[in-house]
Amino acid sequence: MTNASAPTLPARRTRAPRSRTLTVVLGGAVLPLILLAAWQTIASLGVMPTSQLPSPAMVWNAGVDLAQRGLLLPNIGISVQRVFLGFAFGAAAGLFLGAIVGLSRFGDILLAPTLGALRTVPSLAWVPLLIIWLKYGEVSKVTLIAIGAFFPVYTTVSAALRHVDKNLVEAARAFGLNGFALFRTVQLPAVLPSVISGLRLALAQAWLFLVAAELLAASMGLGWLLSDSQNNGRTDRIFLAILLLAIIGKLSDALIGLFARWANKRWA
């Protein structure tokens, strides 16, 4: 601030958000740019053969090549579709059962032990059964992803609901709230931060299980692109698939961030 009369508090407040956004964006881009530069340097020095470490340009060209042949977008599209369907079903079931177990003592007694036991089954153990029951179709993959997305949401929501301040609940009850109105007024806003972090974890799990499902049994998708490229020795495509997973994963996480903002305005 060079202007002596300017540095009042309101003036700084109005200026801060924009410059902060810029700082965040630039700061976040620093490390990827350094990595890119290091990658380019190592590749052009020829320390490793290009069959093991393709240059950034080769990866870019692999992407352009796939796009021109009409293979890139369908592969991305089917993966995104699987993740979002599986995430939606799994998170919805997790919210629903988490709410039942967290709010009702009866539900807790009845369901919590079983769900707790199922949670300890490593989710990939479901793969053989899902393939026998549901065959190699979309349903088996979406189901596996839904299983992966279910447990983080269920666990965080049920635990958070159990720990809602009983005094607040009682006060709201004393002012005539009960049932859904009580849930919406007290419990939901109280557990909202936990729900959001549960959804974040669930989304990460969903991507994890997507790749697992596609590596094991698929004819399309980013996971399939990885295993197919491994078989054909196309390291450039492997790099491409990993980069795409990173970018799309980050974007989908940002969507949860937007949802969190909206939900905080709406309920909290």
């Binding site: 005094n167 607040l168 006060a171 004393a174 002012f175 005539g176 709230l177 806003p189 109280a190 309920w267």
Partner: peptide, 25 residues
């Protein structure tokens, strides 16, 4: 209507919104 020993206000609501909780349905 009860006034508790602790204020028991909903932390995510403003004072106005908290007081509004007391209004009869």
């Amino acid at each position: 209507a009860i006034g508790f020993q602790e204020p028991r206000l909903l932390p995510w609501r403003t004072v106005t919104q908290n007081v509004a909780l007391g209004l009869p349905a």
